[in-house]
C-alpha cells in the first residue's frame, strides 16, 4: 500500500468514525440493532449539503445534520418503546422513510458541493498543511473529542442508567429509571452521530447522494467488531476508543483488499458490501465455534 493510499484509508476511517461510535452505542450498549443508520447517514449528508449551498456555515451545517439525525433516531426509539414495534422492524421503517425524506430535502438524488467552502477546506487553510494530512487530522480531532465527551457522559449518573438500560432493563426500572426515555434518547444520540458523520463524508467527497448510506450498518458493525477484537473492550472507555480505531482498521483492510489481485481476478468497490457482510458473519460466528472447539478438547 502506498503512503498516499494509507492516509486516504485513515481519513475514511475517521470520517466514518462518528458513525461507528453511533453504531457502538446502539448495538453494544443499548442492545438495540438499529438499521436507521443506513438512512441517517445520507440524511446528515443531505442536510449539510443543502445548508451549505443555501449559505450556512459548513460547521453549523454539521450540527444541523446532527439535529436531524437525532430526530430520526428518536422516531425509531418511539416506534419501538411507545408503539411496541420490534426494534429491527422499527429501524427498517425509519430507514425506508428516510430515503423519501432525503430525496425531498435535496430535491434530487444527489447534490454536488463544487465551489463551496467546507470544513475540510477551512481547516487546511488554517493549518497550512497538505490536504492528505490536514483532513485526517481534522476528522481524528473531531472523533476523539466526541469520544472524550461520551466517556465523561457514561460515567455520570445518567450515563450509568444508560449503560444499565442495555444490560438489565428490569434492574434499572426497579431503580426508578424510565427506560423508554433512555432508549429514545440513546437511539437519537446514536443517529445524531451517524448523521454528523454523513455531513463530514459529504463535505470531504464534495457531494451528497441518497444511496451513500447503503451498507452503513454492516460497515459499522464490522468496524466495532474489528476494534473490540484488536483493542479489547474491558471498560466502556476502552471499547469506545477501540470502536473508533476499529473504523480506521476496517478502512485500511478495505484499501488492502481493493489492491489485491489473484491472477486476472481483482476485487472491485462493488464487492465490498459482500466482503463486509461475510466478515461480520465470521466475527459473529467465531466465538461460538471457538467455544465448541474448546469444549470438544476439554472432553478428550
Amino acid at each position: 500500500m502506498t503512503f498516499y493510499a494509507f492516509f486516504g484509508a485513515v481519513e475514511q476511517g475517521f470520517a466514518y468514525g462518528l458513525m461507528v461510535i453511533g453504531v457502538y452505542l446502539t448495538f453494544r450498549i443499548l442492545d438495540f440493532p438499529d438499521l436507521t443508520v443506513d438512512g441517517s447517514l445520507p440524511l446528515g449528508a443531505s442536510v449539510s449539503a443543502v445548508a451549505i449551498t443555501s449559505g450556512h456555515s459548513p460547521l453549523v451545517s454539521i450540527f444541523m445534520a446532527g439535529g436531524a439525525g437525532f430526530l430520526a433516531g428518536m422516531i425509531t426509539g418511539i416506534l419501538n418503546t411507545k408503539f411496541k414495534i420490534l426494534h429491527l422492524l422499527a429501524s427498517i421503517l425509519s430507514m425506508i422513510a428516510l430515503y423519501s425524506i432525503n430525496l425531498r430535502i435535496m430535491g434530487r438524488p444527489n447534490m454536488a458541493l463544487l465551489g463551496q467552502e467546507t470544513v475540510v477546506d477551512r481547516f487546511r487553510e488554517w493549518t497550512g498543511m497538505l490536504p492528505q494530512h490536514s483532513t485526517p487530522l481534522l476528522f481524528a480531532v473531531i472523533c476523539f473529542a466526541v469520544v472524550a465527551v461520551l466517556i465523561w457522559f457514561l460515567h455520570t449518573e445518567q450515563g450509568l442508567a444508560f449503560l444499565a438500560t442495555g444490560d438489565n432493563m428490569q434492574m434499572i426500572t426497579s431503580q426508578g429509571v424510565n427506560t423508554d426515555n433512555v432508549i429514545i434518547f440513546g437511539v437519537g444520540l446514536s443517529n445524531a452521530l451517524v448523521a454528523a458523520s454523513g455531513a463530514l463524508v459529504a463535505q470531504n467527497q464534495g457531494a451528497a447522494d441518497v444511496n451513500m448510506g447503503v451498507g452503513t450498518i454492516v460497515a459499522g458493525l464490522a468496524s466495532v467488531i474489528i476494534g473490540e477484537t484488536v483493542f479489547g473492550d474491558k471498560t466502556v472507555s476502552r471499547a469506545l476508543v477501540a470502536a473508533l480505531l476499529g473504523s480506521v482498521l476496517y478502512r485500511i483492510a478495505i484499501a488492502l483488499a481493493l489492491g489485491m489481485k489473484l491472477g486476472s481476478f481483482s476485487i472491485t468497490p462493488s464487492d465490498l458490501n459482500l466482503i463486509t457482510a461475510v466478515l461480520v458473519v465470521v466475527a459473529l460466528v467465531m466465538p461460538r465455534i471457538k467455544r465448541k472447539f474448546l469444549a470438544g478438547r476439554a472432553v478428550q
Partner: peptide, 13 residues
Amino acid sequence: MANKRGLKRGLGK
C-alpha cells in the same frame, strides 16, 4: 445506581 432510586439523576459523577 441503587443509591439514586427514585431520585433525580443528573450529570454529576
